[in-house]
Design a binder for these strands. Structure first.
Length: 432
RNA sequence: UCCACGAUAGCUCAAUAGGUAGAGCAUGCGGCUGUUAACCGCAGGGUUGUAGGUUCGAGUCCUACUCGUGGAGCCA
C-alpha cells in the first residue's frame, strides 16, 4: 500500500496524525527518549519516541531498529525549531518492515573505492540523493529548452557499423552475419539526417568510448545531448549553446537550490552564469596562454590544464572558436577566411571543470567532404548515406554536443564524474 | 600506454630511528527525557594486499607482482 503522505509535504500538516513509510537514516537515543531519523526519498524527518507515550511493546521495538531498516511510523506532526526541516513527529505507533543487519556505510568517512563498491547503497545518502535530483532537473531543463524552441527529439541508433569520428576507440560486439558492430560514440551524423528532415532536432542518450582514460573527467559510458539545426551557422550555434547553458543553470537554481546547499555548492558562482559568455578565437586563446607564460605550441589542441588557465579569468563559461582544422573532426566546415581553421567551438566550464560542449558548423559541400574522408583514411562506403545529405538539397547546418555528467558535475561542484551518474562505468569498473 | 602516489580491524586512519600493532566510528552489553556524525562505561574484533629477500628481529628496508587512486594522452 502506497504512503498517504511524503516528508517534503509535511510542513503544512502540523497537528495532524499521519503514517509515513521509509528507511532509518540514523538514530540517537537518550534513556527513555529515542530519535529516529526517517528517510523516505523526499527528505529526512526526526521521529521522537517517548517511553511514556507509546506502549511498552512499541518502545522495545524501536531498540531493534538499525540503520537502513525499513519501517512505518504513525504519529503527530509538530513544528519544531530544533529539528531539521522545521517539523518532527511524536510517535505513537511503529512497525519494522524489513530488517537491515550490518549496513556497511556508516555516518563516517569512507574512501572512494569502498563507496563505489557499495554504490547501490551509497545512493541512499543525503548528498548522493541531492546529486540525482539535480541530474534529473538538468535533464528536464534540457528537454524543456529544446521542446520550447521547436526541436524534435530524434533518437539515433546505438549499434553502428563503424566509427563516427574515426579517432576514438570503440566498444565492439559481434553482430550475427554482419561481422563486428560498434557501440555509438556520438549520434551526430544521424542527427544531421534528422535536421535535413525536421529542421531542428536533438538526440539524447548514452554514448560509449573505449578510451583508456583514467581521470575524474572521463567515463566509458556517458549521456550526451546533441542538437543539430539546418541553416544555422557557427554564430547561430554559439548563440544557442550560450542560451542553453544559461537556461540549464538557472533552472537548477530556481528549483533545486536546497540540494545545491546540501552539496555545499557555492550558489553565488552559479548565479553569475548569465549571457553573454566571452567568445575568443583559438588564436586569441593561444595569446592568453603565452601571455601567462605557458609553454604552448600553436596548432596543438588544448589540454585540460590549458583549458583551466584560459577559463580562470571568467565567471561564466568561455567559448573558444575556430580551431586548427588539423586537430578537429573531418565533418567540420573550414573557415572561409582561413581554410587552415575549422568552424568549431568548444565551451569551457568555469572553475576548472573543462570542456562541456563541443560543436561546429558542418561541411556541406560534397567535394570537400569527400576530400576530408580520404584525408582521414575513412572507408567511404560507410559514409554514402551521410554523403547523400549533401547530394540532395545540402544546406549550411550546425550543432553541438553537451556532456551530461560533466554538466552535472560542474553544477553540483563534484570532484569526480563518477558521482554524477547512478552507476558509473569506468576503465577499471563495470560493477555494481 | 606512460608518470606519481597508495594498500594496517567492517570503515577512516595512526604506529617516533627496524624492537610486544593502536585510536575513532561501526557492532554487542549497560547508562542517560532534547539528541543533531549525540555522549559516558565495558567487551569482541588483525595472516599489516600477494610472493620472496635482508636482519637476532620487518607494518617499517629491498625485489617482483596484484589491486586501487589521479594525472598525461584522448575526449563530452
Amino acid at each position: 500500500m502506497k504512503p498517504e503522505i511524503y516528508i517534503k509535504d509535511l510542513k503544512n500538516h502540523a497537528g495532524e496524525t499521519v503514517t509515513l513509510k521509509g528507511w532509518l537514516y540514523n538514530k540517537r537515543k537518550s534513556g527513555k527518549l529515542r530519535f529516529l531519523i526517517l528517510r523516505d526519498g523526499t527528505g529526512l524527518l526526526q521521529c521522537v519516541v517517548f517511553k511514556g507515550s507509546v506502549s511498552e511493546e512499541v518502545f522495545a521495538k524501536t531498540a531493534d531498529l538499525t540503520q537502513e531498516a525499513s519501517f512505518e511510523v504513525t504519529g503527530t506532526i509538530r513544528a519544531e525549531e530544533r529539528a531539521m526541516g522545521g517539523v518532527e513527529m511524536d510517535v505513537t505507533d511503529f512497525n519494522i518492515l524489513g530488517e537491515s543487519v550490518d549496513y556497511p556505510i556508516t555516518p563516517k568517512e569512507h574512501g572512494p573505492e569502498f563507496l563505489m563498491d557499495k554504490r547501490h547503497l551509497w545512493l541512499r545518502s543525503k548528498k548522493q540523493m541531492a546529486v540525482m535530483r539535480i541530474r534529473h532537473r538538468i535533464v528536464k531543463a534540457i528537454r524543456d529548452f529544446f521542446d520550447e524552441r521547436g526541436f524534435t527529439l530524434f533518437d539515433p541508433p546505438i549499434i553502428t557499423p563503424n566509427a563516427v569520428e574515426g579517432t576514438s576507440t570503440l566498444f565492439e560486439t559481434p553482430y550475427f552475419d554482419l561481422g563486428m558492430a560498434y557501440l555509438s560514440q556520438s549520434g551526430q551524423l544521424y542527427a544531421e539526417a534528422g535536421a535535413m528532415a525536421l529542421g531542428k532536432v536533438y538526440t539524447f542518450g548514452p554514448t560509449f568510448r573505449a578510451e583508456k582514460s583514467k581521470t575524474r573527467r572521463h567515463l566509458t559510458e556517458f549521456w550526451m545531448v546533441e542538437p543539430e539545426m539546418a541553416f544555422f551557422d557557427l554564430d547561430d550555434d554559439m548563440d544557442l549553446a550560450e542560451e542553453f547553458l544559461e537556461y540549464i543553470v538557472q533552472s537548477v537554481l530556481k528549483d533545486r537550490k536546497e540540494d545545491l546547499i546540501t552539496l555545499e555548492r557555492d550558489v553565488e558562482k552559479l548565479e553569475k552564469i548569465k549571457r553573454p559568455f566571452p567568445r575568443i578565437s583559438y588564436d586569441e586563446a593561444v595569446k592568453i596562454l603565452k601571455k601567462k607564460g605557458h609553454d604552448f605550441q600553436y596548432g596543438d589542441d588544448f589540454g585540460a590544464p590549458d583549458e583551466t588557465v584560459i577559463g580562470e579569468d571568467y565567471d561564466t563559461p568561455v567559448m573558444i572558436h575556430r580551431y586548427p582544422a588539423a586537430v578537429k573532426a573531418f565533418y567540420m566546415k573550414r573557415d572561409p577566411e582561413n581554410p587552415e581553421l575549422a568552424l568549431a567551438v568548444d565551451v569551457i566550464a568555469p572553475e576548472g571543470y573543462g570542456e562541456i560542449i563541443g560543436g561546429s558548423q558542418r561541411e556541406d559541400e560534397i567535394e570537400l567532404l569527400l576530400e576530408r574522408i580520404k584525408e582521414h583514411d575513412l572507408p567511404q562506403e560507410f559514409f554514402e548515406w551521410y554523403l547523400d545529405l549533401r547530394r540532395y538539397g545540402s544546406v549550411p547546418h550546425s550543432g553541438f554536443g553537451l556532456g551530461l555528467e560533466r554538466t552535472v558535475s560542474w553544477i553540483c561542484g563534484l570532484d569526480h564524474l563518477r558521482e554524477a551518474i547512478p552507476f558509473a562505468r569506468m576503465i577499471y569498473r563495470n560493477t555494481p
